[in-house]
Design a protein around this nucleic acid. Structure first.
Lengths: 142, 142
DNA sequence: TACTACTAGTTCAATCTTGAACTGTTCGGA
DNA sequence: TCCGAACAGTTCAAGATTGAACTAGTAGTA
């Protein structure tokens, strides 16, 4: 791959992330959660409100409503009304929710760890540096 | 980000690709296709059979069946039986299908190009090199 | 020819996803 | 105080997705 177009490079990123996802999916499901539910649980500590989650996960609000319903029924999250803003519900991980989330995170960690093991320490540091630049929504002024 | 875990690094990848996708989605839709349909159309030249597409896109076979149905009805792909293997249907892009696909590809190219512009030429080459290593399903023996 | 295993693609029904419209709450003026 | 805009979250119905089971064709073996 000599001088790939942005599109080709994006495709490499996309297929790599999707490949890892497909690889871990069966194991994550075995923890009692779907991949998307895993992503939701993983954001819960930092984004405890549904509308907040919708923005962080780039998902429509009704999707969050239904996922939370399932996760609550399954005993993975708890919903409590927020006294100072009656529109909102604060979501928290139950112990079993946290356990499932951490198990799934470990599975992903190991799967992607196996790919990262192909890189040298320097390459890995470089990748991290570059990714931070790319991941930001708007270019940093530097 | 000092020494991120594989999981954190994967998340950066994932959110970056999803962010770009969300960014271009409205423009791609304006071409008359959904994002998933765009991915399908983009694979068609290299993977002209449904079962082949299912593997390349990591999607279940029925999903392909229904997407192809829509794309055919919309006039973006043509289906023809394959004389030497009557189980198979060869799919080809119609002129309007190719046009939509190329327009969508250009949109993605420009959106991700704007992010890549944050990198130096050297960083970009390094990223490409690293990504090729990571994207392969199995580690290369080197 | 007959048999078996495999592959391509579809159907169906159950489930999931989501745009649009809605309820109820908060907030910032005037 | 009241009003209108904005926001949190839900409901509903239309459409999308997909596991399981299916039909049909191919390939290899004997």
């Amino acid at each position: 791959m000599g001088k790939p177009s942005p599109w080709e490079l994006w495709t490499l990123h996309f297929e790599m992330t999707m490949g890892v996802m497909a690889e871990v999916e069966p194991e994550v499901r075995a923890q009692g959660i779907e991949m998307k539910e895993f992503f939701l649980l993983g954001k819960l500590d930092d984004h405890p409100y549904p509308a907040d989650l919708a923005r962080a996960l780039l998902m429509p609000k009704p999707t969050i409503t239904f996922m939370v319903k399932r996760l609550e029924a399954a005993g993975f999250v708890k919903r409590q009304t927020e006294a100072d803003d009656l529109r909102r519900f604060r979501l928290t991980l139950t112990p079993s929710g946290r356990k499932a989330m951490e198990a799934a995170r470990k599975i992903l960690d190991e799967a992607f760890g196996r790919r990262l093991a192909r890189l040298s320490t320097g390459e890995r540091a470089e990748l991290t540096r570059i990714l931070v630049l790319l991941a930001e929504k708007h270019a940093r002024t530097r």
